[in-house]
Design a protein around this nucleic acid. Structure first.
Length: 433
RNA sequence: GGAGGAGUGGCCGAGUGGUCGAAGGCAGCGGUUUUGAAAACCGCCGUAUCGCAAGGUACCGGGGGUUCGAAUCCCUCCUCCUCCGCCA
C-alpha cells in the first residue's frame, strides 16, 4: 500500500510512476485528493466535537449526582454526544473508502525499473552457461517423464482434474531431493533460517502481501468447516504470504536486520485467467512445490539485498549446471506489490525457450505498510517501516522440468546433476526407476 | 466435541462507571556520586493520528451496545490456558 500522505503530497509524481505500469493503474487515484480533503475535514470536525464533550464531561464529574445542575448538563450532553457519534461514523466511512482505494493501488515501480509494457520489453541482464547441444531432437519433459514412468498426468486428472500431476519413483525422489538440496544450500551457505509455515492462512495475511483484495480469483479458498468461524482460510499461493507475515504487527530491532528465511512449501494457484497457457506438462499447475527466500531489511539496504537475494537463487541453477538467463522486468510486467523484479529464466530444450523459474523482487515498504512490519532504527527512536524482499529459490517442479530436458540422453534416460547425486543415490534415471 | 479460566504499556502486574494513557515493579535511556564499575538516588521511558505550533483525538485482545461519561457493565467474535473425550 502506498502512503496516503505521499500520494496526496506528490499526486503528479505518483500518477506518473503508476502510469509506467499501465495507463489504467492511475484510475483509482482520481478520487483520492478529494477524499483526503474530506477526511481531514471529518477528522477535525469529530475531534473538536470530542474535545468539547470530554471537557464538559470533566466538569460534570465534579457536580454532585443528585443536583439539578447535573441533570441539566446531562440532558444537554445527550445531543452533543449523539452528534459526535454521527461525526465519527462519517469519518470512519471516509477512512474506509480511502483504505479501499489505496489497497487496490499497485506499488510504484522503482526508478531503476525500466520502461516497457510487456515481457517482450524486459532487458536481459546476463546469461549463464551455454545452450545445451543435442545430437538428437530433444524431447519435452512430459514425453521424457511419461516414458520413464516417473510422471503421470492421466491419473492426476482422475484424482483432481486438469493441471495436477503425480510423480512416481525417481521423479518423486528428485522432487524431494531438490527441496533438500535447495534448503541445505540456502541455510548452510547463504545464511538463511529455515522455516516451515502453515499452508492455510487468513485473509489478513494475504492482504499484507498484496494478493488480496484484488486477486482473490487466483486463490483457492477453503469453505468453513465450522459455521461459527468468522473468517475463511486460503491455501497459500506462495510461501511469501505466511513467511512475510511472520513479522506482521511487530517492531523488529535494527540489530536483527537483515532477517533471512528460507521456506519450503507447496503452493496452490487457481489462476482463473490463465487457461490456454502452458496446458501441457508441469509448467503451470494448480499445486506445485517451491523453496522461497524472504528477507526483511532497513530501507537503505534493500537495493543491495535484492542483488544478494537474486544471486542466491542463481546459485541453485549454477550448482545444478542449468543454463539460464536473468531478465529485469519492465514497469509494465512487474507484479502488483513489487517495485523491482529480476526473473531467472531457465532454458528448456523441449520448448526451445527460456521459462521463468524464479522471480526475485523488492517491495520497498509496500508490504510492510499493509502488514505493519516495522523496526526500531536505534534506542529511543521511532519505529520505521521495514523493507521486504522475496524470491523463489527455486520453483521445484520447474527445476525438475529443466533437469529432465537439459540432462536428457539419446536413449531416453536422464543424467542426474552432480550436486543432486548424494540426495538421489543414483547418477542416472532410467525407465523403471 | 464437552466443562471451566484468562487476555491491561517491551515484560510482570494493580485498577471503585467520572480526577485513568492507566498505580507499582522489572528491563531500557540520561544524570548525580565514583579512579572505573556496582550499588544508591534523581529524571526520562507506548503507538497512531490531526496541527506550523501550543495542543487535541484515539487506543487496556477485535467488533458492537448501554451511558452525559466505559479498561471497568452487556453482547459477540478471536486467541491462549486447564480438565475430559476423539485423533495422526
Amino acid at each position: 500500500m502506498l502512503d496516503l500522505r505521499l500520494v496526496i503530497d506528490n499526486l503528479e509524481e505518483v500518477r506518473k510512476g503508476l502510469a509506467r505500469r499501465n495507463p489504467e493503474a492511475v484510475a483509482p487515484l482520481e478520487a483520492i485528493a478529494e477524499l483526503a480533503a474530506a477526511r481531514r475535514e471529518a477528522i477535525v470536525a469529530a475531534e473538536s466535537h470530542a474535545a468539547r464533550r470530554n471537557a464538559a464531561n470533566q466538569e460534570m464529574s465534579k457536580l454532585p449526582k443528585q443536583s439539578p445542575e447535573f441533570a441539566q448538563r446531562r440532558d444537554e450532553l445527550k445531543s452533543l454526544s449523539s452528534e459526535l457519534k454521527e461525526l465519527e461514523h462519517k469519518r470512519d466511512e471516509i477512512e474506509a473508502r480511502i483504505q479501499q482505494v489505496l489497497l487496490g493501488v499497485p506499488n510504484l515501480p522503482d526508478p531503476s525499473t525500466p520502461d516497457g509494457s510487456t515481457s517482450e520489453d524486459n532487458p536481459v541482464v546476463h546469461t549463464w552457461g551455454e545452450v545445451p547441444k543435442f545430437s538428437f531432437e530433444p524431447k519435452a519433459h512430459w514425453d521424457i517423464g511419461v516414458n520413464l514412468g516417473i510422471l503421470d498426468f492421466e491419473r492426476a486428472s482422475k484424482l483432481s482434474g486438469p493441471r495436477f500431476s503425480v510423480l512416481f519413483g525417481a521423479g518423486a525422489r528428485m522432487e524431494r531431493a531438490l527441496i533438500s538440496f535447495m534448503l541445505d544450500l540456502h541455510t548452510r551457505e547463504h545464511g538463511y533460517r529455515e522455516v516451515l509455515p502453515p499452508f492455510l492462512v487468513k485473509d489478513t495475511a494475504l492482504r499484507g502481501t498484496g494478493q488480496l483484495p484484488k486477486f482473490e480469483q487466483d486463490l483457492f479458498k477453503t469453505s468453513k468447516a465450522d459455521p461459527d468461524k468468522t473468517y475463511d482460510l486460503y491455501l497459500i499461493p506462495t510461501a511469501e504470504v505466511p513467511v512475510t507475515n511472520l513479522h506482521a504487527d511487530e517492531v523488529l530491532e535494527a540489530e536483527q536486520l537483515p532477517i533471512a528465511y528460507a521456506a519450503y512449501t507447496p503452493c496452490f494457484r487457481s489462476e482463473a485467467g490463465s487457461y490456454g497457457k502452458d496446458v501441457r506438462g508441469l509448467i503451470r499447475q494448480h499445486q506445485f512445490d517451491k523453496v522461497e527466500l524472504v528477507r526483511f531489511c532497513a530501507p537503505e539496504d534493500s537495493a543491495a539485498q535484492l542483488e544478494l537475494l537474486t544471486s542466491h537463487a542463481e546459485k541453485v541453477l549454477q550448482k545444478l549446471g542449468l543454463h539460464y538467463r536473468v531478465v529485469q522486468l519492465c514497469a509494465g510486467d512487474i507484479g502488483f506489490s513489487a517495485a523491482k523484479t529480476y526473473d531467472l529464466e531457465v532454458w528448456l530444450p523441449g520448448l526451445s525457450a527460456y521459462r521463468e523459474i524464479s522471480s526475485c523482487s523488492s517491495f520497498g515498504d509496500f508490504q510492510a505498510r499493509r502488514a505493519a512490519i516495522r523496526f526500531r532504527p536505534g534506542k529511543g527512536q521511532k519505529p520505521r517501516l521495514a523493507h521486504t524482499l522475496n524470491g523463489s529459490g527455486l520453483a521445484v517442479g520447474r527445476t525438475l522440468v529443466a533437469i529432465l530436458e537439459q540432462y536428457q540422453q539419446a536413449d531416453g534416460s536422464v543424467t542426474v546433476p552432480e550436486a543432486l547425486r548424494t540426495y538421489m543415490g543414483t547418477d542416472v534415471i532410467r525407465p523403471g526407476n
